[in-house]
Design a protein around this nucleic acid. Structure first.
Lengths: 353, 353
DNA sequence: CTGAAAGCGCTTACAG
DNA sequence: CTGAAAGCGCTTACAG
């Protein structure tokens, strides 16, 4: 709190070291052409005076341009989830544009692996100074990560993660824990002996740990806590076609007509809500993910009881800032930035939209 | 997106207007000594070129110092709630210190109206350029607001609000809506016919709308939705003494032994948790506010089911930034910044701490 | 009322 | 290996 009043500048440290400010700049940025003797001297003074460079002045004087890029899914016509990250990216860019940061976006289709590969190639040929990746198609993203490492392009994963790829950082939710939260909410509201259904809907389920982990977390909660209270059934639907999904749900309800709780492992929960409405089912506890345009009306109507929000806007915002900190400010960035598992009901919805 | 590539500067607009950059600066900052003719000319060019001043360069060149101040409750030994805002204030200050912002803190005791008045007088005699106020003692804060208006000191309310005082902004939660959220969670988990207790604990209850509004929201939910499902009783405890609180609770439980749900309208919910534990009561649904050091252990143990978080760190952070935007950057600030009503359970706790 | 000049703290060639 | 100088976009006295 009481720090010395006057801001100390490279001028001060130049004087105290008996060199010119140009030399000070060289040692601060470690760009060589300095004798080890003066190097040491300057570094010492730097420490002693606790010099903090003024990054505003630095940005002003520097003509350097930094090019960032983002590779993420396009909004598909099934779910609008991927609209939100754009807002976070834009917000972050606005804050850092004064630092000479530019940005390009590359969009792939979440149901088309080839589109991922094509866009990844474009990114690589543009050779950005830093890359933001949503690795929703895990196998393909893994390949990309390897190439980035080879080309020394620092990258941040956001929304979902792949462990140990030398990413600068992962920004997103702990997917398994979010499943546990879903389970707790289910447990809290369901009466003893009820039957529960877990629904996973994704084109390439085996290729997406994010969704699998949620299911695992959900199941684990009941295994460890109250194995006997509920009977749990799971289905996987490897299609985004509304007809296919409807058929699969109708089929499972024919077999298990007494299901009273449904947990959907991603934003496709609205399909289940539609099914419930169309089938005129009553008293079903429905929990899913994400405040998408498709889901929100069902939360408001009470067909969906809880939506778990992953803060998609903040994810991309924080991810860009993390990349900026690493690439531009050379700051240390934490390996993981885990965002809250927000529990959204009709009554607190408007503060998350 | 496609904006003209080159950044346009006061130099550009000086050239295009046929004046010097000094003059441009005068009109941009409206500091007079400019003929209306050149004024108009320069303004026109400014619009046409869509000139955006570089605030980094501006801050660098300017020697101006801006003094902000905060008046808020000290941490009392009953609840640690007021620890959190300090973090938000510090985070904000770190981000804006390059702009020449300094800050002083003034702490009053939430149980001592005179201490508020004493600190308010100190603030006023220091005459800051902007003031952050937590108006927990409403009547006293109201007086202060009036004086600030007279002295033209812009101020932001945070945590709780007093309407129509010409504040720059209110940053905090919608207290009534948070009560509604509490009610919904109570409703969701309680079986029909249960009895509910609403507990308010505060030294000067009548002097704090924030807490009263929460209660009102809670009651309103049940009045409008399910009047008949539950029986609801309320008590007010105008003391922070643990003995007094314990006695009051014991008394109410003697009269209403079948209470199955308790809603506490502020961070003092841990008192009720202690009572429940000590009395060995079972199957009680307990909902309260704030992730304080006192409350968290009871959430973890399962004595408290839900805590509604008001994001105290973010509140103060956003409040300082709002003040900064208004005072330093002369930006427009929204009248209200309403933060989410976060629902916290044991399972998602760690992401909010 | 207006302009020229110095300076904020740093970076970037350029000369030696 | 090192220093002096110009410049980033803006603000601030100072002359006139």
């Amino acid at each position: 709190m009481k720090k010395s009043d006057k801001k100390i500048t490279i001028k001060d440290i130049a004087q105290r070291s008996g060199v010119s400010i140009g030399t000070v700049d060289r040692v601060i940025h470690n760009r060589g052409e300095v004798s080890s003797k003066t190097m040491k001297k300057v570094l010492r003074v730097t420490k002693v005076l606790n010099f903090q460079p003024d990054i505003l002045a630095s940005a002003l004087a520097s003509k350097k341009k930094v090019r960032l890029a983002t590779l993420m899914p396009a909004v598909d016509n099934d779910s609008s989830f991927w609209k939100a990250p754009n807002l976070g990216i834009e917000k972050a860019l606005k804050e850092i544009e004064h630092y000479g940061v530019t940005h390009s976006k590359y969009l792939f289709s979440i149901s088309d692996r080839n589109s991922f590969i094509a866009e990844a190639e474009k990114v690589l040929s543009d050779n950005p100074d830093g890359l933001l990746i949503a690795p929703s198609l895990q196998n393909e993203a893994l390949e990309l990560a390897k190439i980035c490492n080879a080309k020394k392009i620092p990258f941040v994963f956001f929304n979902s993660n792949i462990s140990n790829q030398n990413q600068v950082c992962y920004v997103g939710q702990d997917s398994k824990q979010s499943g546990i939260v879903g389970a707790k909410l289910m447990d809290y509201g369901l009466s003893k002996g009820s039957e529960i259904l877990v629904v996973s809907i994704f084109r390439f389920l085996k290729n997406n740990n994010h969704i699998l982990n949620r299911k695992q977390g959900f199941l684990q909660y009941f295994e460890s806590n109250k194995a006997s209270r509920f009977k749990i059934t799971s289905i996987e639907i490897n299609s985004l076609d509304a007809g296919d999904i409807y058929k699969a749900l109708r089929n499972i309800f024919n077999i298990h007509p007494k299901i009273k709780g449904i947990f959907v492992t991603n934003s496709r929960v609205f399909h289940v809500a539609r099914f419930i409405e169309a089938s005129n089912l009553r008293g079903i506890n429905l929990i899913g993910y994400d405040l998408t345009d498709e889901n929100i009306p069902y939360l408001e109507k009470g067909v969906i009881n809880f939506l778990i929000d992953q803060k998609p806007v903040e994810q991309s915002y924080r991810a860009i800032i993390a990349l900026f900190n690493k690439v531009v400010l050379k700051k240390n960035v934490p390996e993981e930035i885990l965002l809250p598992i927000d529990i959204v009901i009709k009554e607190n919805l408007k503060y998350y939209e």
